[in-house]
């Protein structure tokens, strides 16, 4: 039996919605098959008011063993570092976060906001938001760069806006069943099993990417979304085209560009006209090239690919 406590800071509940839609395993499977005892969750917890405070205090004191502390949303520090803009159970949420993180065996940050601050921490960051152990790319965050949970692991970051349901439940199961040792983390403390390959890996538009045929409107079934519509699939680490959403599809499969939401810099767009869902270019060349590709190589490849492109690459081959 592993006790799980889930709290929300500066959050939209997107990761809760995602979690409740998990299928492999489902949120119910966590309880019935994998021995997870959900102590409290904002959408599932029964305790309110004094009873909730009593539960949280019991976790902090060690009276109740806290095996997994899952946090969704940013740590809100405003105004002026007090955290009073996000009060919870009688005190600033950030105080609960500090005390609970210090007693938990594992701390798991769920979604972009909890990992690196996400949208709330975007400049000018009026809520003085931080992720648990990062603020955007900068290591540190609310708990500091040297924080480790009692297990010895730093915060396990599961980014995304929201995180895919199965990324959440599979990591929770691994931790709860004593398999945390098999989780290796990348430089941003993301589980490598999910965040080593690219969003583009498994994308159905890869042949259009290869032959440099561009989609020019949302929802088009032919063409690659990288060249004109700002898709960040070739630069973003996620398994969105390997572990499909709703077991069916992904943004890029549906004709919507990847927004890069598993990377610390998200959101990338500055909302100026011409920047949202538009590939950013400098003198006609994309500002951000596919990971590991240099500009000279990219230009040479484009020339060769266009010259070699077959006629079918320009057609909508998905029409039945």
């Amino acid at each position: 039996m592993a006790n799980l406590l889930w709290l929300q800071g500066g959050a939209c509940s997107g990761n809760t919605m995602s979690f409740l839609n998990a299928e492999e395993p489902s949120a119910v499977d966590l309880v019935t098959d994998f021995g997870i005892n959900v102590l409290w969750h904002p959408s599932l917890g029964m305790e309110l008011g004094d009873n909730l405070q009593k539960l949280l205090r019991a976790c902090v004191s060690g009276e109740i063993a806290l095996d997994i502390f899952a946090f969704e949303g940013t740590v809100v520090n405003a105004p002026n570092g007090t955290g009073d803009w996000n009060r919870f159970a009688g005190r600033p949420m950030k105080e609960w976060v500090r005390e609970l993180a210090n007693v938990a065996q594992f701390v798991v940050a769920l979604g972009d906001c909890a990992t690196w601050g996400g949208i709330p921490a975007t400049a000018p960051n009026p809520t003085e938001s931080q992720g648990l152990q990062f603020l955007k790319r900068e290591r540190g965050g609310f708990l500091g760069p040297d924080f480790t949970a009692k297990s010895g692991l730093p915060v396990i970051n599961i980014p995304g806006c929201p995180a895919h349901p199965d990324w959440i439940t599979q990591i929770l199961v691994a931790v709860a069943t004593g398999n945390a040792g098999e989780i290796t983390l990348d430089e941003f403390q993301r589980p490598k099993t999910f965040f080593t390959s690219f969003t583009q890996t498994g994308c159905t538009r890869n042949m259009h990417f290869a032959y440099k045929v561009s989609a020019t409107e949302f929802g088009q079934r032919k063409g690659c979304l990288f060249y004109d519509l700002g898709c960040r699939g070739p630069m973003t680490h996620s398994p969105c085209n390997r572990i499909l959403w709703n077991r069916q599809s992904s943004k890029t499969r549906a004709g919507m560009p990847c927004l890069g939401c598993t990377e610390p810099e998200f959101p990338f767009f500055d909302l100026e006209p011409g920047t949202v869902f538009k590939t950013q270019t400098v003198m006609g060349v994309p500002k951000d090239l596919p990971a590991g590709v240099d500009q000279a190589g990219y230009i040479k490849l484009t020339g060769a690919a266009k010259a070699a492109a077959p006629a079918w690459a320009e057609e909508d081959i998905f029409v039945v």
Partner: peptide, 11 residues
């Protein structure tokens, strides 16, 4: 002018 940025392109 050649549009140097995406914003100029958009205009």
């Amino acid at each position: 002018p050649f549009p140097e940025t995406a914003q100029e392109f958009a205009r």
